[in-house]
Design a protein around this nucleic acid. Structure first.
Length: 301
DNA sequence: CACGAGACCTGTTCGC
DNA sequence: TGCGAACAGGTCTCGT
């Protein structure tokens, strides 16, 4: 599931820890409150903890270095910082950096060492006697790197859409030189880091751009609108802890705000027209045929 | 350079 | 109810 807002949520949870929460607390759900995940024990911050051991349960998870070297090298290092770049989670250690990519789902969280491990658990980093950092990944697509040079892993990534340096002029210039359909372009992490299928569809709808539009053909007002909608959608989703349909993200609730993603046949929240679903570059793509005019169907200018 | 197809995987939902 | 098909938030590689 994870796109930029979900990964940001995971990072924040690792940095700040999670307060305890019970599904039965205070007579159930607050009226108007965000839906809450189930019972969860309190867990502390990952920052400052020392890695005392590791267990690799699905070897293909580890890209580099080889397992024996990984185990020897990661042991004894202390966690200094937890940050995000695109959809990567960066855990800076004493001398190296651990990079995690969840790909199509999963979780990275602190758990008591006494707790039973999920069958989807692929890597465990032991943190003393009480806690462990657990990388769960049901579909086995997720990957982990340990390196002194994170740039070697992140090298090709495009700009960070929420960074101050990512200006409307910057995006506009990048779009102008790409003869590519806008939807697959937004999913290309070398073009822009962090968008995935949900937020690409949502950003395009808010900017009123048809997903098959040619990037280089977008008129300036659409390009400006896209810059704003990308940032707005991502910021808003982060406030809601992402759009999670499963556990492990601390109650992501942005699905209540989605305007097109997986709303096929339901009315557009702006104009009431039924949302359509098409395939673009093998990915499900949701849009409003009225709000998001076809590239060919040019209005008189 | 741009694009489609296939691969990598398991779990859940849909249709008959 | 049961069972296979379709589908899922991502990315890589190959062939055209």
């Amino acid at each position: 599931m994870p796109e930029l807002p979900e990964v940001e949520t995971v990072c924040r949870n690792l940095r700040e820890g999670l307060p305890s929460r019970s599904s039965r607390a205070k007579g159930g759900r607050r009226p108007g409150g965000r839906p809450q995940a189930g019972r969860r024990a309190a867990c502390p911050s990952l920052l400052g903890r020392r890695i005392t051991g590791s267990r690799l349960l699905w070897p293909p998870t580890l890209v580099t270095p080889a397992p024996a070297r990984f185990r020897a090298r990661v042991r004894g290092q202390r966690v200094r910082e937890v940050t995000r770049r695109g959809k990567f989670i960066l855990v800076r250690l004493t001398t190296d950096t651990l990079l995690f990519h969840l790909r199509m789902g999963g979780a990275l969280q602190l758990e008591p060492r006494a707790a039973p491990l999920s069958p989807h658990c692929r890597l465990v980093l032991e943190l003393g006697t009480r806690w462990q950092l657990v990388f769960c990944n049901p579909r086995k697509f997720g990957r982990v790197w340990l390196t002194a040079d994170p740039g070697s892993v992140l090298g090709e990534l495009g700009p960070e859409p929420l960074a101050d340096a990512f200006s409307v002029e910057h995006l506009s210039a990048l779009l102008a030189e790409r003869h590519r359909r806008i939807k697959p372009l937004l999913l290309d992490q070398r073009f822009l880091a962090g968008l995935g299928n949900i937020y690409a569809d949502e950003a395009l709808h808010r900017a009123r751009i048809h997903p098959l539009s040619l990037a280089s053909d977008l008129p300036l007002p659409r390009r400006r609108a896209l810059w704003g909608s990308i940032r707005k959608v991502l910021r808003e989703a982060i406030r809601y802890n992402g759009t999670s349909f499963d556990e492990g993200y601390g109650g992501g609730a942005y699905f209540t705000r989605l305007r097109v993603y997986q709303r096929t046949g339901r009315p557009c929240r702006r104009c009431g027209t039924p949302i359509e679903r098409i395939l673009v570059g093998q990915r499900s793509t949701h849009f409003c045929p009225a709000c998001q005019a076809r590239p060919g169907a040019r209005a008189r200018s």
